[in-house]
Write a protein that binds this DNA or RNA. Structure first.
Lengths: 222, 222
DNA sequence: CTCACTTTGTGCCTGCGTTCACAAGCGCTT
DNA sequence: AAGCGCTTGTGAACGCAGGCACAAAGTGAG
């Protein structure tokens, strides 16, 4: 399930705090879910809890990692090294969780050869070679929308079977290829939608904000 | 619904291509969803289609934008200007879709005063003042996990009611505050999970990749 | 040994979202 | 004017995930 990584993060935090045993209720709170749901999720991996006691944190970390396929490192290529690509390449959360960024690729010749997070940026023409050379199964697309589908096609053709797409496009891929999409502008739009349901307009937000602290100087002229 | 932004993007693309009318089937393909679902989603906004013809693209863009609350600009603050914060501040997709980044805040004194995407970075202590001054309803947290909850609390106390969280933590907020979470490392873990279901190990990926092009030099020693 | 307490694992129910399939409606052609 | 073909809008069935509530199972005290 998609919640396992959240559990894993909560469990890792608990393990580092020195907690050795945790109940489904405690873990559920830490992960922000219902305890029954959590128990049902964990029961799909097997019976790793002890009734009356709870779950052994270290053992559960191991089992969840195993289930997620994180007991070994997955090789990753990042295509597109704009601001976002840089952020991803430098993000420590990947390396520490079973992912190894093995190649950086960009179409912009002025970026090729640059050193980013300890790796040299390769030209787009090397994409296929790099994928095969490093046994890369996961590709990250951080290019502008215009180039995303072409990059995607080439990744798939080279043998990549999982793609994380940050470009604001719907990618077309064969059925056996898994794509996950992260679109920050869409997330913001969803927030705006809910925000609008509450207050109807940004002007009303300003008014509400002023009401919070009526004594302060009016921040926005009405 | 969470799909409206996807429709909006597809519609915008169609509008720019000069298409004036689109059927639910065509739009569904462009958005990557089922056509019945799309029709049902759109019917919740009202009857904006014409039977036998389809939907007027421009009119639908307007209606969806209105529903999403994008007909006006929403003020946004970005907290945390590491690589990710930089990427977000420079991302053109926000400005062009009804969002205006009005303030940048970071706890790191060496970043304060720097110019990022045409805005000056303010110290964390100015957070509350900036939120009220600009009538900011939406906060983006791009800090390390350690500081995220504190920043979140201060945003909420200042009056922000929607938060987009990029930090790998579960944020605790009052019920009336909407939080959306983007966690790239979790997305990668989900991909790894599915990848493992297909092939069991990265070594097998390497083997499979070699099989794709058996004539090439073996890339990974077995 | 027994009893009371704690916590897991799960059966069952409820509700929501998805999809199919079709009737209603619109425009174009004849 | 009338019929035909296309497309929307929606009723109804289906499936699945979420949550309640309880039985099963383990622990520790007396």
């Amino acid at each position: 399930m998609a919640r396992l990584p959240v559990y894993l993060r909560a469990l890792s935090a608990l393990a580092e705090s020195g907690v050795s045993t945790v109940s489904s209720e405690e873990l559920a709170v830490a992960a922000g879910v219902n305890s029954a749901k959590l128990r049902k999720d964990l029961s799909h991996l097997g019976s790793y809890g002890t009734r009356g006691v709870g779950y052994d944190v270290d053992y559960l970390v191991y089992q969840v990692s195993r289930e997620l396929g994180l007991s070994q490192d997955w090789a990753v290529v990042i295509v597109g090294l704009g601001h976002l690509g840089h952020a991803l390449a430098n993000y420590g959360g990947f390396v520490s969780r079973g992912f190894a960024i093995r190649a950086l690729v960009d179409a912009d010749a002025s970026l090729v050869g640059a050193d980013v997070a300890g790796l040299k940026v390769s030209p787009l023409s090397d994409l296929e070679r790099l994928v095969r050379q490093h046994g890369i199964a996961i590709g990250v697309i951080a290019t502008p929308a215009a180039g995303a589908q072409e990059v995607c096609d080439r990744l798939v053709a080279a043998g990549v079977s999982s793609i994380l797409n940050f470009a604001p496009t719907v990618l077309v891929v064969p059925a056996e290829v898994e794509v996950r999409k992260v679109d920050m502008s869409i997330e913001l739009q969803i927030l705006a939608f809910h925000e609008q349901r509450k207050v109807s307009s940004p002007q009303q937000v300003a008014r509400r904000l002023n009401e919070v602290l009526p004594d302060e100087r009016r921040a926005v002229s009405s």
